[in-house]
Design a protein around this nucleic acid. Sequence first.
DNA 1: GTGAAAGCGCTAACAA
DNA 2: TTGTTAGCGCTTTCAC
Lengths: 317, 317
Amino acid sequence: MAGVAPITVSRAINRPELVTKDTLDHIREVIARTGYVPNLLAGGLASKRSRLVAAIVPTIGNSIFAEAVECLTDRLGEAGYKVLLGLSGYPSSREDELLATVLSRRPDAVFLTGITHSPESRQRLLAAKIPVVETWDLTPTPIDMLVGFSHEKLGRAVAAYLIGKGYRRLGLVWASDERAAVRRRGFEEAAAERGVTDIQVAILPAPGNLKLGRDGLAKLLDGPQRPDAVFCSSDALAQGVLTEAQARGLSVPGDLAIMGFGDLEFAPYTYPALSTVRIDRRAIGLLAAEAMLARFEDKPVEKIVDIGFEIVEREST
Amino acid sequence: MAGVAPITVSRAINRPELVTKDTLDHIREVIARTGYVPNLLAGGLASKRSRLVAAIVPTIGNSIFAEAVECLTDRLGEAGYKVLLGLSGYPSSREDELLATVLSRRPDAVFLTGITHSPESRQRLLAAKIPVVETWDLTPTPIDMLVGFSHEKLGRAVAAYLIGKGYRRLGLVWASDERAAVRRRGFEEAAAERGVTDIQVAILPAPGNLKLGRDGLAKLLDGPQRPDAVFCSSDALAQGVLTEAQARGLSVPGDLAIMGFGDLEFAPYTYPALSTVRIDRRAIGLLAAEAMLARFEDKPVEKIVDIGFEIVEREST
DNA sequence: GTGAAAGCGCTAACAA
DNA sequence: TTGTTAGCGCTTTCAC
């Protein structure tokens, strides 16, 4: 319709600097007039670049993963990429089949949650020969790239922190998820090194929520050793623990200190008594996006990025 | 590699009932052995069905939209569809360009938030000739299909409820978003009909959060008329209002009744004193998915689905 | 700076 | 039940 070859239109859209201004203006005018929408499926097939990035997370509902996905989507969107959402559920039960179906869309990169993947999945990812960013954890042997933090160190740090504050009867209200298990191990090891060994644990199904947190604390309080400090594997559980403590008339942190994990926004303001461990969730999405974009342009990339964590102590008001 | 024509492999994958068991088994064995992954980009181009559904929401971080998207993704995933995530921000500032870029991926359907779209967007959607589901609101004239509820009715219902309880000095802590504005209108109209007109309003930027809620209540309390009941445009704001009330030593609902909107999971347990309006967020995603799937199979579909709402009253404990 | 030819990896339509 | 042919709408490559 513009009286030029298809390839010229393609250039006008994708590499306008290769087209004379006059031709460009004319093509753009025709595009605007006709409402032409390029077909990126066809473009992707021809160029072998889908401009799609797959993001596989357990869940985005009320969760720490939503913000990371949001940042990833925003940053990649700026560069013309769209995010294909894959929800694997807890405990990553569907990651394998999800990965298979998602790879058939030929994404240009994959964002993964965690570092534990089946041999088939690893194999498939390697075979796809695309940038892969694992997140939320640390390992010296990522599939490709990694943005996360050490759950073991985090567990250790919290144990040291609580024991340093004088607490000795420690309890855990804990979801049965894999990364949480590593935090627990770090916590128990560091506690043992300080002579605290009799740690009470209430294990609950993932993902945690307020109700489960209440149940968890109830279990601990009715157990053999009443804890004076409870560390929770998520802020959602911590809220439940706090609620149960309030319902039972316990003062926080006087009778019972409570620590959460994740620093969900509602926690800090709502419960000034509730300390937690802050993770820069937005950084995970952003850094993952940057890593992918760098790789698309063959720029050098840091393979492993440790974003760390921060213990946030809140005063009772 | 399997010694059959490409189309036979295609059938073995997509319509196995058309292939003899022996051929099928053989093809499947070869697929498993070689790790063949079909290219759905090519498939989509050839069949004109991308098996992609675009979901455009303002945000998924800490938000009521995340769960709807999650349900949509789950249900569509069962049917072999993947969700392309589009985040338009508040106040849908990027919806137009987002829609353009998303449509170039040739989605088989589109999930939209709200019923207000630019003429260009409506035009583009109509031109795409695919199922479109608008959500979170109601209108007699949807672009195509609709799953939502009436914000005006909801506002009216809350006004009637509060006034019925005897409250007369009403306040609103309100985000400046479009659907909230409709709820406000309904609220004020119904209040006026009952003789309550002097409603104090604190307007805050969207999306609301706890901090903004605190600020909002502070503004109202320092204003000319101290409210005895505050309705908030979201539960996030309501939490802030509650926090501020507690910080000022007000009893809830004794000195100040607070109503939220959205029924986020943390609200009911955390604040037994906090009533709210429950929206079935999961139903929105699920019904939208069902509507799309029905249309894909040319089954009859209810064009407009009102999922209603429910005032959830909580006792103080 | 622009174009012609070929082909990306599938599936629709029709044929055997 | 299986195969042949053609073509989806782009981009690559190479030529002009």
